[in-house]
Design a binder for these strands. Structure first.
Length: 228
DNA sequence: GACCAGGCACATC
DNA sequence: GATGTGCATGGT
């Protein structure tokens, strides 16, 4: 018999994940995510927000709209160079221009340039395909699947890992799949819940659980947490 | 002026 | 499999 790690005693007292959702929801209200009007805008936003403050993404999206490039046609016709210039405020603009172009090539190649057609494919098939697109990793793929294509996946981001590791749901620096699997196992399989829960986590993370946590006023302030 | 943000690919060990 | 590095703007 192996010695029980110290963490598990804390972990055993953790409220169920749904209770955490309720705490956040009571604090922030329904978040009405993703902040974007069309599936395409959501997909572009998911790429632009990689390791970037959303404020900067908003500027880049505004630029795209003003340049009339936030459409499949507009994005196909713009050069990678010009696209990079338009999305400059979002940072990593050369990389991200390449990534957007890679997504478009994928969409045109596999789904005849139709997001509607893409939507009809299965979650598993789409996830595998998206991960093969250069510049789309697990979080971006899952954000696209959940928020643009209405697929039932739980999106894990830096805040999800940080907040829930901090409150003993995981060891420090848990893997993406480990976290995702637990949320999907323990929560009711409900796309609307997955949608709003992730949004609540971002709201909480943005305000209270950045790399240097500011726990005062956090909806989870009263729960046990690591202090390192 | 340092630190950080809703990641990802690629190199190296 | 874990760990390190480049990518880059703009807010605190």
């Amino acid at each position: 018999m192996r010695a029980t790690p110290k963490r598990s005693r804390e972990a055993d007292r953790n409220p169920p994940l749904l209770e955490i959702y309720r705490l956040m929801f009571n604090r922030f209200g329904h978040r009405d995510w993703w902040p974007g009007d069309t599936p395409l805008e959501i997909i572009i936003g998911a790429i632009l927000t990689q390791n970037t403050a959303w404020k900067n993404v908003e500027k880049a999206i505004r630029n795209l709209k003003e340049a009339k490039r936030l459409s499949l046609k507009g994005l196909r016709e713009v050069s990678e160079r010009e696209l990079a210039d338009v999305i400059r405020p979002s940072g990593y603009f050369n990389q991200k221009a390449k990534k957007i172009k890679a997504f478009l090539a994928f969409l045109d190649d596999r789904y005849g340039g139709s997001i509607t057609k893409m939507k009809r494919a299965s979650l598993e098939k789409l996830r595998t395909e998206l991960l093969e697109v250069n510049g789309i990793g697990p979080e971006t793929a899952d954000s696209i699947l959940l928020y643009a294509l209405d697929k039932k996946v739980f999106v894990v981001d830096a805040y999800t890992r940080r907040i829930f590791a901090r409150h003993f749901y995981f060891d420090p620096n848990p893997g993406y799949h480990e976290v995702q699997a637990r949320f999907e196992r323990e929560l009711p399989a409900d796309a609307e819940l997955f949608n709003d829960f992730h949004a609540q986590i971002v709201a909480t993370g943005n305000r209270y659980c950045r790399r240097r946590p500011r726990c005062e006023g956090c909806p989870l302030e009263h729960l046990p947490h690591r202090t390192d």
